[in-house]
Amino acid sequence: MKHINYLLGTAFLLFMTGTSYGCNLKAQNNDKTTLVTQYAETKPKEQYVKIALLLDTSNSMDGLINQAKAQLWDIVNEFTHAKCGTNARPSLQIALYEYGNDNLSSREGYIRQVLGFSNDLDEISEKLFSLTTNGGEEYCGQVIHTSLKQLDWGKNADDLKMIFIAGNEPFTQGKLDYRDAATNAKEKDIIVNTIFCGNYDQGISTMWKKGATLTGGEYMAIDHNRQVVHINTPYDDIIIQLNSKLNNTYISYGSSGRQKKELQSMQDANAAELEEAVVVKRAVSKSSRLYKNATWDLVDAADEDEAVISELKDRDLPKELQGKSENEIKAYVKQKKTEREEIQKRIQELNAKREAYIAEHQKEEAGELENAMLSAIKAQASKKNYTWDKK
């Protein structure tokens, strides 16, 4: 499980240290002299965790891409339980860049924005699976600079903003100095985390560690070609069956509804191509608060604003609801919502048992480093008013 935890541990580290700082701003900025009425009128801004993944897609990086595909759901599932000192739960947005690929424009520095910040987990998965590798020049400083310039990082000081850049060539390549990019990131309160695909000491000598420490980020080195090994559990098959039932609770609507529902199934299939355990992790993500599809699913849309049902044209509804009265549609949506909540609850219950099973069997494997890291992270985070739970 080492290779699974490397990227996840890095994400978890920056998430906890960064988010706890943001949470602290709200928790400690409590002026006792503020009138209750003024406090009630001032609603806190929604908090975000914004992650930009900058992935090297040159010839040797197939293993890195495969790990990213599998580990996406590990990261999402950890972020599901994030909670600030104010009890607020931040929303997660992920952006994706590829760099170092000959198929990309040389004018743009062999860099491409694959996806801007998005909370659409199916779309994020789709874009990861669309990546292919080819030879090219790898300009770390330039891709960091580009992501800082192009993405909407927002101005909320309480948001956690971080970059994960992974690759295996010297961090110093390219016309744009990585130190200038790091300075720019720090000014924007964005943490840069570097993941060197290769020997730990080699990554240090090629400035990958320096690229991280300049912004207070973390440097990690991984064997990107190591095969992902998952621990199968007695609960996996049941969770996969429940995942299929979960899909049946989605009611597509609007011009893109059918395509989005097909995309949902396609990403289940993509996960299955990697390994059965990845399907399980994705199912757990789909049963979490972070998997929301109000733009195409009538259950999520009505949960945000039930008025959407009365506003829809008959042609925007799926065939099974066309010609139905508004009350009939509302009853159908309510039924599907109840079914979904029951299935999601069951998946979460089974996942708790699954995680306990994995933890027990991991004791036989070499994983002390990862366990020590997580313990240290939790200790540091707790000092900054950050908590997480399994509710």
Rank of each mutant, 00 (worst) to 15 (best):
H3C: 13
I4A: 05
G9Y: 10
G9R: 02
A11V: 09
L14F: 15
F15P: 01
M16D: 08
K26L: 09
Q28L: 14
T33P: 03
V36R: 10
T37N: 11
Y39F: 14
E41K: 12
K45G: 07
E46D: 08
L53Y: 00
S58P: 04
S58L: 03
N59G: 14
D62V: 15
L64E: 05
I65P: 01
I65S: 03
N66G: 02
N66A: 08
A68N: 07
K69F: 02
D74L: 14
V76E: 01
V76D: 01
E78P: 00
T80Y: 06
K83V: 07
C84S: 11
N87H: 07
L96V: 12
Y99D: 05
L104N: 07
S105L: 10
G109M: 00
R112K: 10
L115V: 07
E123R: 11
I124A: 05
S125H: 12
K127N: 07
Y139P: 00
G141C: 02
V143A: 05
Q150A: 03
D152G: 04
W153I: 01
G154S: 07
K155P: 03
D159E: 13
Q173A: 07
Q173T: 14
R179Y: 06
A182M: 13
K188R: 06
I191L: 15
I191H: 09
T194F: 01
C197E: 03
M207D: 15
K210F: 08
Y219L: 09
M220R: 15
N225M: 10
R226P: 02
Q227Y: 08
V228Q: 13
V229A: 08
H230M: 15
N232T: 12
Y235E: 04
K245F: 12
K245Y: 09
L246M: 08
T249F: 01
I251S: 09
S255F: 09
S256K: 11
S256P: 04
E262I: 14
E262H: 13
L263I: 10
Q264M: 11
Q267S: 05
D268P: 06
E273T: 13
L274A: 07
E276Q: 10
A277T: 14
V278H: 01
A283T: 03
A283Y: 06
K286A: 10
K286C: 11
Y291D: 06
A294V: 10
T295I: 13
L298H: 01
D300C: 06
A301R: 04
V308L: 06
I309M: 05
R315M: 09
P318Q: 06
E320R: 14
E328H: 13
I329V: 08
K334N: 12
E341V: 10
I343A: 00
Q344R: 03
I347E: 00
Q348S: 06
L350W: 03
A352K: 11
A352G: 04
R354F: 03
R354L: 03
E355I: 13
A356F: 11
A356D: 13
H361G: 04
K363V: 08
K363C: 02
E365H: 10
A366T: 12
G367C: 07
G367P: 12
N371S: 14
L374I: 13
S375L: 12
I377V: 15
A381W: 05
K391M: 08
